[in-house]
Design a protein around this nucleic acid. Sequence first.
DNA 1: CGCCTCATTGGACAATATGTCCGAGCTGGA
DNA 2: TCCAGCTCGGACATATTGTCCAATGAGGCG
Lengths: 208, 208
Amino acid sequence: MTNTDERVRLWSPVCEAVAALLAPYAEVVLHDVRGDRVLGVWNPMSGRGPGAPSLLGELDRLAPSPGGVYGPYEKLLADGRRLSSVSAVLRDPGGEPSAVLCVNLDRTPLEQAAALLAAFAAPSASRPEALFEQDWTERVQQIVGAYVREHGRPVERLTREDRLAVLAELDRAGVFTVRRAPSVVAGALRTSRSTLYALLAELRRSRP
Amino acid sequence: MTNTDERVRLWSPVCEAVAALLAPYAEVVLHDVRGDRVLGVWNPMSGRGPGAPSLLGELDRLAPSPGGVYGPYEKLLADGRRLSSVSAVLRDPGGEPSAVLCVNLDRTPLEQAAALLAAFAAPSASRPEALFEQDWTERVQQIVGAYVREHGRPVERLTREDRLAVLAELDRAGVFTVRRAPSVVAGALRTSRSTLYALLAELRRSRP
DNA sequence: CGCCTCATTGGACAATATGTCCGAGCTGGA
DNA sequence: TCCAGCTCGGACATATTGTCCAATGAGGCG
């Protein structure tokens, strides 16, 4: 038995390229179509190595495309991962089948991402709960902080107009429907509770 | 000029397989390394077809892996799409370079999905505002309603345990950080304010 | 039925929190 | 300097939140 099959030398660039492109989610296997053995594996996932049996019999039950390509079809790994696979019959210069190239793409990462996306896109009625902003205090700091950063003035040096603007945002955000919000906001705005109410009154006089 | 190059016959199964596996986000191109021409394209994306110039000069500046594979490296399409590409030098039985296989994977769908995921995972400072649940009253009704529907008992006939359970949900959802919530919840649960507080106390005794 | 237990209830009350108001004090411009 | 306009601390009036209790009511059981 020669250490490197002539066919491996011939096809390995392709195998390596595909494996590199799809790493680490794909495995490329080169099969010996006559001896029913594995000639080489790139990015092994299924635990097989060169010399293992090929189990290519299943290909017989599939209809190839005109170009001699099978699939994509689904495979199941021992640990439950699902794979998308395609196989191609490779022929030697004389037109005779000499090897089978098989690419196995692990679908689970994609499926997980898709599930996440789907769950996100469809709000779903499963659990309508758990959404009332636990740390609203932090949120207040964020809103104030955003304004400060955007205007390059520290909280202490905000003008009356600045504070009015921030208050408008906070009010629009519904902050004041929360218990104890007035004190927290006054603190965050570095102003007194009295002033806070004065500003708030002014604000609500112009936009009821 | 022959209609089908010998090399196309030889390599097309590979090209077709890869193109099929990655469709519709990948393009496979087979280049003539000597004549600097395109021999074939599967899933064309860049508008090139057989016979077009290859523009393979750029490969000279890249260092191949031991197996003769270049990449993955980045390419830019005319319309702005970004591609991940790998190239493999294919050699004839005599070991002489005869063609270059190039796989171009359109990264934009993945990048968009990744951006969406990233945006979702990291709330981001873009617009931290406008999220404090305007109609929390409605929300209370929904949570209570969901429980009622799920247990097939109208609100009036909920048992003590039922109300405890609903209260647990409401509390966990932070409803009671909102002003005037106790009265609203008592109303929604068809119970008195007194009982409401009693249940709440019991609840918080077991899970502080 | 009569008795007993336990949950519920309205309302009293205490404890906080929310809004208002006012006089004192500060600041910046005429 | 004086004035206009704000801000501030704190008093005060209201509103909301929590507690408590005695009365009431709804079973379960002998």
